[in-house]
Design a protein around this nucleic acid. Sequence first.
DNA 1: AAGTGTGAAGCAGTTCACAGCA
DNA 2: TGCTGTGAACTGCTTCACACTT
Lengths: 204, 204
Amino acid sequence: MRYARIPDQTIRRLPLYLRALFFVAEQGQSEVSSKDLAQYVGVHGWQVRKDFSFFGEFGRPGVGYRVSWLTEQIKTILRLDSEKKAVLVGAGNLGAAVLSFSGFQKYNLAIVAAFDADAEKIGQRVSGVEIMDIACLESVSELGATLAIVTVPGEVAQDVVGQLINVGIKGILNFTSCRLIVPDQVRVTNIDIGMDLASLPYYI
Amino acid sequence: MRYARIPDQTIRRLPLYLRALFFVAEQGQSEVSSKDLAQYVGVHGWQVRKDFSFFGEFGRPGVGYRVSWLTEQIKTILRLDSEKKAVLVGAGNLGAAVLSFSGFQKYNLAIVAAFDADAEKIGQRVSGVEIMDIACLESVSELGATLAIVTVPGEVAQDVVGQLINVGIKGILNFTSCRLIVPDQVRVTNIDIGMDLASLPYYI
DNA sequence: AAGTGTGAAGCAGTTCACAGCA
DNA sequence: TGCTGTGAACTGCTTCACACTT
């Protein structure tokens, strides 16, 4: 099944497997079976094995998967084998909370700069990252950042995103409740806290 | 097609339609076509019509959908026609950012209390919500809250969630990077910022 | 003329069952 | 014996085409 077209759903599960592998490694395990890995992710063993089978033969029958090696494989597939740089735009409450978040490192991600329009905030440091003037957004290309986290007010989101694309940003994590219009080569992931909470009552 | 079993994917799109309807209403439109609504959500018109067809006949041929009426229908389906109460646990950076978020109201959601373990924070008010001692979590049942937002450190997440379920919480918005183990009647939505950002490099 | 509602076709992802390997 | 890898069956969602309504 190697080298076939990879189902989108499989790709979406890979980060979950990676997170589970971090957890398994912390427990001190060096081998893990598809069944155990599946349990941490909330799927079945056959789903795990099928997903991996699209990329090659990762495991050893009768034994399972070597945790460290599998981790590297998935990191490589997800392009997390080399460090990726991200910038944050909008250093309000939510932006500052994201800057203080320490969980990016294990994915080889680094926030290298933050931007805001508020003169009060410019020059200040939040969690070791200096807030720069949003008018200086062109410096993003020199920093080599390809990812952006957008935590600005909704009214300016589309405008900011247009500028980000101009300076070479290819992936956007959008915390505003606006649908962003971007060219095909740019990927957007939306996190809409209000909508996510509003999705729950249906199921209860 | 009315009264058939509703596809899960359809349910997941309903909050997106609702958000789009809020936007359309703000523009002052009172009617909207499936094609226009689809554009705001990023799907095709036939998808919108098919989704709505599971619930009944919502539109008028040649005209479109009445914005206000359709909004009410979707709110009813999603159980957002009456106010739902939520509590927040963990008033750190991220928790405070969520408390200051003003986008819950239009979904008929209200954060009625916040909890933290830090004695320094207890008694303080953040965005009009008083921080209470996490030891007093049982007061949640008196408040009538059924939803919870969990922004505590990962190490205590599972423990906190166990307590929340004991006091009647049925839906959880989980911001920690831990998989929560909950009974079948409890629904969890996970937001893992690190993992979400880590998903982007594959596509670029 | 414009736009909805839906049966049927097509496609993608999930699940199964089991052969094969350590 | 235990666990992986995978063709084949199955399931469910998406897409289409068009009859029907205003």
